[in-house]
Design a protein around this nucleic acid. Structure first.
Lengths: 206, 206, 206, 206
DNA sequence: AATGAATGAGCATTCATTCAT
DNA sequence: CATGAATGAATGCTCATTCAT
């Protein structure tokens, strides 16, 4: 629980580079072999370093996994925000949100294959909840903000923004899930289109 | 690969009872402590039996996990089918499908908390794909059947049934996911209502 | 060490038949899969019975193994004795001893493949010594008896009968060993001929 | 089948030392307690290290056993070769071969007690055959080379060199076997003398 | 910063053995 | 006699973690 050894406050440049390198290798290994089969040794082997070095740069496995998850979520979050912010109308923002979500997935498949595996690494309800706050709360808040803008601009009708944000984010995640398990079984482009159309067609008419 | 010891062809009553009992205990333990923390010893402890007995009734951990997953999916599938079949109109069938999905979740939370963890137990793309076929193909097929009925009955307009089935199932799974991580962060009832309304309001108008 | 439960003094007919059946199956399984891979379950499977039954008929694994070894040695001993006794001259007796040893091996290969494996089942010097007394002492004594007859009959010259018995028996066992590991790498017939000729040609000339 | 983790190409000094140390301890433990009773834990206990370290230096038990067998055979082979090469005449070479075989045994009894046990560690005919090639083929080839020299030098008469090599090696191994099971039951010195005399007396006269 | 030797706890799995039926 | 459910100890092996160098 409590880390025995805290990392220096001001990580050097090389320090950060190593961490990034290790996280990337970890995600790739997890995506290929599954979380349970991914050991420090396995990650190190793919990187040409020793497992001791990984332990040196991270305060234990938990730290590595947590950092990896944050990396995935942050990168995707930044990408989505950029796309959404480039639009003015709420409907376009929503379309951008959905499309960007899927675009980022397709470009970073290993990240999401790993992510699905990493969900199994939480050992308590508290860890799960913490992940929820980090992963879902910002997403749903972002969607609700778009909905609010839409309502203020008169683009969207009246609906339960909170529930709807969960629904839209849920659809995105659920489609991601199907695509992670079998990339050929679900057409992300078509699904994205249907999802967007479904929503925009509907809520703009109330 | 090849199981060393096959179970008798006709499992006895006590055999089946034990397997069920062990599977239930496994799901509960996984839901509580996470998949990675769930060992045969842990499961056995909660049951008051020895871990040797678990190995006696299952051909290894893989068998136990697979059986557990199938138990979850089968039970939920039966429940949903019953609810859907009790409706005549396609719109009602769809509503029943969505509502039944969430109802079953709420009544069997540990099953789904465990399920999310078990997604991380697949070690290869092949296993993931096999799970996809078992878990998702039937669901999407069921939804498409409802869509087809709706179109034949003139209730639904024209849309990409395949993509839409993925979207609807995705939304259900994605909402489940949020609810698994933080049961209080998402109002399943409200989300169910929005999802249903979203779809039925929309597709009936095309 | 001490058997907890002694078998009834007067084994029934069916009792003996079962033991024989189990011993034969055990020897075959050991010959096929090796001693370390041979469990009660494995033996039982090849026999269509349960492993519990094996435990019922033998006082533990040690009893089964010991019985199996004795079975092998006794049967071979009887066969050799019959062949030797049918000869009058010492040289013929010796030739019969050697030939019979190899003949029996060829006709009962699994017995000897198993025997070589079973040598690894002795856990202490005492057990090894006990095996030596059961297995080797009678053989060497038999050979020495033949030598004594030969000397008394004037067929053989003077030599260290004790050492020579060890040498002859050793050659037989050592050839068996090579043949067990790779049946095609050693020509038992030719070796038997050379061994016999070597001895008879030599000792008769001193 | 496939080792999961290959050792570095250039084993360090300490690495080799540890391996040697562990192999020696393994042979001693096997000689004392038998192969089936010899676990990693048992070996480690006698060395004052943990069993994890053994797993660290060897790719599994099979690797350790194989390495141990090769150690025994190589060391003995080197010793015998040295002794044989120091002789010029074929008869002296043969005598040296036989004497050196027994001398090495007496000086390294635990090695051979262990070796007899390790014969039971092969689980398939393929492994047995592989052992045969490693252990017996070089020995028989060496003997045949001596025979050929003897024939070329006119020391030995004409005989089936292939069969005879199997016989001589067989006698050596068979005597070793008797001596392993009961060191006091067989006089290796006397047996060595009889075996040598038997052969040299005979074949030189044809 | 990096290595690799070493640890120790934990794991699934095997198996002879027991015993009620 | 025979079964099959159940035990419990042991085994090889994995792996995150520590630490001297």
């Amino acid at each position: 629980m409590t880390p025995k050894q805290t990392k220096p406050d001001q990580p050097t440049f090389i320090e950060e580079a190593r961490r990034k390198q290790i996280i990337d290798a970890a995600l790739e290994t997890i995506a290929e072999q599954g979380y349970t089969q991914t050991s420090f040794a396995e990650i190190a082997k793919g990187l040409g370093i020793t497992k001791g070095l990984i332990a040196y740069h991270f305060n234990g496995k938990h730290d590595l996994i947590t950092s990896a998850i944050h990396t995935i979520l942050n990168q995707q979050g930044v990408y989505i925000k950029t796309q959404v912010d480039s639009q003015v109308q709420a409907a376009d923002k929503l379309r951008a949100y959905i499309q960007a979500s899927f675009e980022y997935m397709v470009q970073n498949r290993p990240h999401f294959v790993a992510l699905v595996d990493l969900w199994g690494s939480f050992t308590s309800a508290e860890e799960k909840q913490a992940f929820s706050q980090t992963a879902y709360d910002p997403c749903r808040a972002h969607l609700q903000k778009i909905f609010r803008i839409g309502r203020e601009r008169g683009e969207f009708g009246n609906f339960d923004a909170q529930a709807m944000s969960a629904v839209v984010q849920g659809a995105i995640d659920g489609l991601m899930l199907q695509w992670v398990f079998a990339p050929d079984a679900v057409d992300l482009k078509a699904a994205s289109r249907e999802l967007t159309g479904l929503f925009i067609g509907r809520v703009t008419q109330r």
